[in-house]
Design a binder for these strands. Structure first.
Lengths: 141, 141
DNA sequence: CGCCATAGTAACCATTTCTATTACAGCGGG
DNA sequence: CCCGCTGTAATAGAAATGGTTACTATGGCG
C-alpha cells in the first residue's frame, strides 16, 4: 500500500508554525497552515487534532482562534509526530491465520513480529533524533 | 493506511520451502505453499514471482513444476525479501506540491526526504540482520 | 505426439484507506 | 448576540490490497 503523508503534513505544519512564531505570530488558523501545505483546511484541522490529542499543539476556539505549539520546537521530535498521527505497523503480519498444523505456520508469527518490532524501533530512533527545530534549521540552511 | 503483508507472506513461503528442503522436498507447488500460508495459490504465485524476479527462488514449469530456493536460506535476508516485494517509502512526502512561496513549503521536501531515508536505512539494516535460516531456526526453537 | 499438472498472468470484485470536500454544530471573544 | 474559527460527520473518488476465476504457456511423461 502506498504510505500515507500525514507525518509530512503534520511536520510541515509544525515547522511553519515555529517559523511564524519566530516572526511574532504564535498562533495560526487552519486556513493559514493549509495555504503553506497546499491542502484543504479540514485536512489540517484533522492532523493538528491528532497533535493536540498528543499534547504537541494547543488550540483556541471562538473569535481569534487558531493553533500554537504547546512546547518548544526543539522538544518536539519527528517521533512524537509519527506516534501521534501514524502509529501503525510498518509491515503487517498475515491477514488470515496461517495453517497451525504446519510447523512454520504455527510458529512464524511471533518470530516475524519480533523482527519487525526491532526494525521499527531502529526506524523510530532515527525519527527521535530530529526535532521540529532541527528540521526548520535545515530548511532555512 | 494499512501496511501490506507481502513481506510476511513471502518470508513464510521461503521458510516453509527451506523446511521442506531439509525434509527432502526441494520443490513445492504454489498450492502446497498456499496451504501453509492459508491463502490463495494465485497470491503465492504472485509473491514468489516477485522473489523469482529478484533471483531468490527458481521456478520450473510443466509437469512436476514448482518453486525452489535459488540459494541457501542463510544467504537470503529479510531485507532481500522486503526489497523484492515492498520497496515502497515507509512515509510519503506531500501528495500535492507545497506552496513554494512559503519558505517552509519551498525547502521542506529534501529535508524530510533525507530524514526518512536515514530512518528507512536503519529499518533496512535490521531486516538485513535476519536470514530465512535464522527465522526458521527461531520458529523451530 | 498428445495429455496434463502447474506456473504465469489478466480480469474482476469487495474491502479498506487516503485525500479532499461540503456541511454544520459548538465554542467563545468582542 | 454575532461572527470567526475549531471540531467533526458525511460523502466521494482514487488507489491499493487480498482474493477469485479463468485462461494461456510450459514442458515432462506416457
Amino acid at each position: 500500500m502506498a504510505a500515507n503523508s500525514r507525518v509530512t503534513i503534520a511536520a510541515h505544519a509544525l515547522a511553519w508554525m515555529e517559523l511564524a512564531r519566530r516572526r511574532g505570530r504564535a498562533q495560526l488558523t487552519s486556513e493559514e497552515v493549509a495555504a503553506s501545505v497546499n491542502t484543504n483546511p479540514v485536512i489540517v484541522r484533522r492532523s493538528l487534532g491528532d497533535l493536540r490529542r498528543a499534547g504537541l499543539v494547543s488550540t483556541r476556539r471562538g473569535t481569534g482562534a487558531g493553533f500554537a505549539l504547546a512546547r518548544p520546537a526543539s522538544e518536539i521530535t519527528l517521533l512524537d509526530v509519527w506516534t501521534a498521527v501514524a502509529a501503525e505497523p510498518l509491515i503487517a503480519l498475515h491477514h488470515t491465520e496461517p495453517n497451525l498444523e504446519c510447523p512454520v505456520g504455527a510458529g512464524i508469527r511471533p518470530v516475524l513480529a519480533e523482527v519487525y518490532d526491532e526494525a521499527t524501533a531502529a526506524f523510530r530512533a532515527k525519527l527521535a533524533g530530529q526535532s521540529i527545530a532541527d528540521v526548520l534549521e535545515r530548511i532555512l540552511q
